[in-house]
Structures are given as structure tokens and as C-alpha cells.
Design a protein around this nucleic acid. Sequence first.
DNA 1: TTGTGTTTTACGACCTCC
DNA 2: GGAGGTCGTAAAACACAA
Length: 292
Amino acid sequence: MDRVRLIFDSSSSRGRHEQRMLLLGGGGSPVFGGARSALAAAEGANKRRPFFTSPEEHLEEEYYYDEQLPDKKRRLSPEQVRLLERSFEAENKLEPERKSELARKLGLQPRQVAVWFQNRRARWKTKQLEHDFDRLKSSYGSLLSDHDSLLKENDRLRSQVISLTEKLQSRTAASAGAAGIAGTKSDVQAAASVADPATLAVQTKVEDRLSAGSGGSAVVDGEAAKQLVDSSEVSYFREGYHCMGPVDGGQVHSEEDDVSDEGCNYYSDGIFAAEHRHQEVVDAQLDWWAWS
DNA sequence: TTGTGTTTTACGACCTCC
DNA sequence: GGAGGTCGTAAAACACAA
């Protein structure tokens, strides 16, 4: 029997539709021939064997062609795959010369080499995507934990600011009381300005931290905030957070100053409520001084 | 042995480049 | 318009648990 085997040739780029069978000579050179023994080949279809063994191997297989099912796929031999992998590592695109050269070396159709490279590139891309996904996932994880610890630190500092501000207010009230009960609101504020320098230093520090990076100082109350949110397509207000201007010597600017959220400090619900209560106490106190 | 999930080979459709 | 690329998919080959 001739040392030939059945393969498919669809090597012409657009001629893939019109598959035609080739008879491949034992040495690997393609020889045109008829669709030889397709039926006979079908009889041996249950036996598993690699489609393209190495040229040396298929020289040894006398019975090979009678067993082939023409439309069966066959895996490439490990040696063929090894060479293809080496070639792919060197360059993952295939120029026509290299394709022909590889095909000749491996005893494959150029079309098979091209298909192998296409599939190999697809596998490489999938691996690359998995790799990128893993990297992004771990990077996201560490960013998230950084973000959480920053939020905690932020809350801690804000609590500290509130507590220090309250202390300052009580000292201010004590100083004003010593100055005389008939003082006015501006007297109280003046008294505050001559408060204990150490206290003022602390106050200045925390105010600096609070207002760092903020250009304006606006309080947006619940209704104003709602209007702002409603009037813009995209809300920049984070749910559960409130915009407050920086604490300004116990004073908080009114919403008329600036209705944009530029310069806002965002406070969580708890901090916002505490600060809001605190501001009410301060205002009531000042009113009491003014009217009494 | 068989059922099932994964990998590999191959192709068609479509796109881009020259 | 041809050549060669990607993408999605079919089907054979293969691995492996039950």
C-alpha cells in the first residue's frame, strides 16, 4: 500500500469552504489525489490515534490510511506541538515564509500551522486576561482596605475635633462669664479671641486639618442638599454623608455663601448629627447672651 | 464502562490593512 | 479584492470520577 494518508486541505485563505482531500506523501509532501478510501477509513474510526504523527512515525505505520476517517480531527504529536510552541515563543505572528517553513518541517499543511497559531494566540489572550483580572482583583482588595482604614481614621479625627471644639466653647463661656453677664454676642466672640492660647493652638490645628483642600465654606441643610441633588443629573452627594463647611471659630457659614459643594467636608450621619446638635447649643447660648 | 467536563483542532463570519 | 487577523463555536480527543 502507498505510504499516503488522508488529510483535509483548506489552505487557501478563502477556499476553506471548498475542502478537498489531499493525499499526503510519506515524506510530508502533499500529493493531490482522490478522496481515497473514505468509507474504509470510517470503519476504523473508533480507534484513537493522533492525526499527524511525526514524519518518522508515519513512515512506520503501514496500516495507517485504511483506518483513517477523513473528517476526523487528529491531535498534533508532542514533538510537533513542542516545535510550534518554540516558534510561538519567538514570535506569535506568522509570516508566510515561516508558516511554509514550519509546515514543511512538521509535515503539516500550512493551513494547519496557521490555525494552530490562531488558536494559540486565543489561548494566550485568555491566560493574559485571567492574569490581568487576578492582578486587578488583588489591587482592588488592597485599595479597599486602605480606604477603610482611612475612613476610620477620618471619623476618629472628626470626633476629636468635636470634642476639642466643645471644650473650647466651655472655656470661652467661662471667660465671658468672668467678663460680666451683661455682655453681647460680640462680647462673647471677642472673649473667645482672648481665650487660652494653648486652646486656640489646638483649635487652629484641627481647623486646618478640617479645611485642608477646601476653597469655600458652606452649610447645606437637608432641604438645600435635596434641591442640589434634584437639580443635577449626577449626584455628588454620597448617601449617608452630609456636606458641612469647615468649623470657623465656632461659626458656620450660611448656605447663601456658596451653594456648590466645592469646599464641602463630608460628614457621616453620626458626626453630622453631633455637629448639628453642637451648633444648636452654641447658637442658643449666644442668643441667651444677646437677649439677656 | 460510561457520563461529563475540559482541551484541542478546525471552520465560518466578519474586520482591517494594503 | 486578497491576505491574514479575531471571535465564536462545533466536534473530536482526552481526562477523570463514579
